[in-house]
Amino acid sequence: MPLVSNILSSSLGQKYLMALSGVGLFGFIVVHMLGNLTILAGPSAINEYAAKLHSMGPLLWIARIGLLGMAGVHIWAAVRLTRDNRKARSVQYEGVVDPVDRHRKSKIVSTYASRTMIYSGLIIAAFALFHIAHFTWKIPQINGVEVDFETFYVYEVSAGSDQVAYLTPLPDGVGKEGENAVDVYKMLTTGFKVWWVSIFYVIAVGLLCIHLSHGLSAMFQSLGLKTKAYEKWIDHFACATGWLLFGGYASVPVSILLGIIP
């Protein structure tokens, strides 16, 4: 298939894959954040959201495999392109760019975000692994508290006032992974009480948002959708989205750490 080989073998094709997988990952990040924010509506809301998500069964797995695939493509393309870039320019200049140049309208020095995409990206990938180990696989050794998140389950149906759905915990040892609803609220509030975990999360989402603030506008460029007419709008959109996502994501650990969410 020439189309496939053109995409896989050409630099522009790899940039398309990068951009398209980026779009997918970006979509996931937005949805994920909206899910996170259900915590603001109270414990039952986020627990119910989590339980419904988990009850989707095969669909959930398709989504997970899809996400994994997109992340894989994104990283594969990034590593290949970066390798090419390093090879293409092995010598750096000795002369220092004078940043104060009244004649030059545009900056010659590229933005910090654009220069550090590969680093922010790789750190984010590492963070994603930690995040999955932390809250999905619930490996007790890394959560920084003496409890195992594997024991946090709640009733899914209301059976009277002492068993409010998605609020009342199951007794210890009764819940089972995959069968009972997880008490996400308790997991988050417990997990983010650990200061270094929270700070790590905030830093990581910060990097994610820096990554996106350039990645989003570059995505438009790579797909050929950016022109001078819309350039400012796209850049503002990318920047604003970066900040919004940062606010949305960071708000949860920060609120928990500061006790705003009990």
Binding site: A88, S110, T111, S217
Partner: peptide
């Protein structure tokens, strides 16, 4: 040649 990472240095 390397790839475009949209830094804009070329245009400048």
């Amino acid at each position: 040649f390397g790839n475009c990472t949209v830094t804009g240095a070329c245009e400048a």
